[in-house]
Computed example of a mutant assay.
Amino acid sequence: MELDGRVAIVTGAASGIGLALARELVRRGARVVVGDLHRDATEAAAASIAGGVGGETPSGDDRVRAVPVFGDTSDPTVIAAQIAAAQAAFGPVDVYFANAGISTGAGLGATEEEWSRSLDVNLMAHVRAARALVPGWIERGSGYFVSTASAAGLLSQIGSATYTTTKHALVGFAEWLSITYGDDGVGVSCVCPMGVDTALLRPKHTVGAEEALMLHTVESAGVVLTPEAVATAVLDAVEQGQFLVLPHPEVLEMYRGKGADYGGWISGMRRLQRALRKSVTSKGKS
């Protein structure tokens, strides 16, 4: 899909990958609804994008290119408000970036509330947005849905059952969406990065043992990319109509190795977990 002149919604867009996506979309000529949870951060992000702060608007174009809609983007009423704001400011939505995500809970000790919240944000937010947009795209014969999943959705995430499970489910939903509606003009991309330099990887709060294990696993898995590098890879993939987006190319080889020898891969992940637990414990004692 050519992005110049398109209308996009980006969730989780006040920081990290979402903000980088929104800025790069505007640089490529799109107009964007910036969605995030908190009013001040969402409005500041939209203002910075529209004003060219931290990113460039198209040369000579002083029109508003980004508008904010704050709220819980797993809530159907907020999704509806995003779509309505896009329509009012720019026109019908062409592409939706379901980018917001959370990492909460850990192992079997994760609470029912943590499981419910993880499923809501990491999976059902995508389902609800697709439900709201895809029928209209089918009528128009075009539209594009982008799900930010994770390499954890292909490989698994040491240290977090909630994150692993919801991201696996999300990859499955994105595959189903593409298979079911690809012949109707609906494009789908599923983004599966490893470490990205965002608050999700480097939280400001004090982390528990399992979260520390998860973060250490990601940090040690490979290069930690900037949000801008991921945004560029994602939008290049959208323009090329590519389904699986791997900002870390090595994930493909890991995924192939998993499929070729599932038992060996499980054993290898256990060994890795043991080594990482020792490393985290040693850091905690130092």
Rank of each mutant, 00 (worst) to 15 (best):
A151I: 07
H126C: 14
L123H: 07
D183T: 12
Y163P: 05
R117E: 01
H126N: 15
G141E: 13
R117C: 12
R140G: 04
E139P: 03
A129P: 04
E175L: 10
W115E: 04
N99V: 07
V146I: 12
T180C: 12
R131I: 06
G109R: 09
T111E: 06
H126D: 13
A130E: 05
F145D: 06
A152L: 07
A152I: 03
G143E: 08
I102P: 07
G172T: 10
A100N: 02
I102V: 14
E112H: 10
T162H: 06
T104Y: 02
S116H: 08
Y144T: 03
E114Q: 15
W176N: 15
E113Q: 12
R131M: 06
Y181L: 09
T162S: 13
S103M: 14
G136K: 03
E114A: 14
T148G: 13
A130H: 03
W137F: 04
S118T: 03
N99A: 12
Y163F: 11
A98I: 08
S103Y: 03
D184V: 01
H126T: 14
P135E: 07
T166A: 11
G105S: 05
Q157Y: 01
V121A: 07
D183I: 05
A110H: 02
N99P: 05
T148R: 06
K167P: 05
A125L: 03
G153W: 01
L155Y: 06
L119E: 04
T165K: 09
G101R: 00
A132M: 06
S103G: 15
Y181T: 07
D183Y: 12
Q157S: 14
G105I: 00
T164R: 11
G105Q: 01
L123F: 09
W176Y: 14
S147E: 11
A130V: 06
T104V: 15
G143S: 09
T148Q: 12
S160F: 01
L170H: 07
A161K: 12
E113V: 03
R128E: 04
S147A: 15
S178C: 14
S116K: 12
A129K: 01
T165A: 14
A152Q: 07
T165V: 12
G101M: 01
Y163V: 03
D120P: 05
G109L: 04
A149E: 06
Y181I: 05
G105Y: 00
W176L: 15
S156W: 09
H126S: 15
N99G: 10
I138S: 07
L154N: 10
A132D: 08
T148P: 05
G185I: 04
W115V: 09
Y181Q: 10
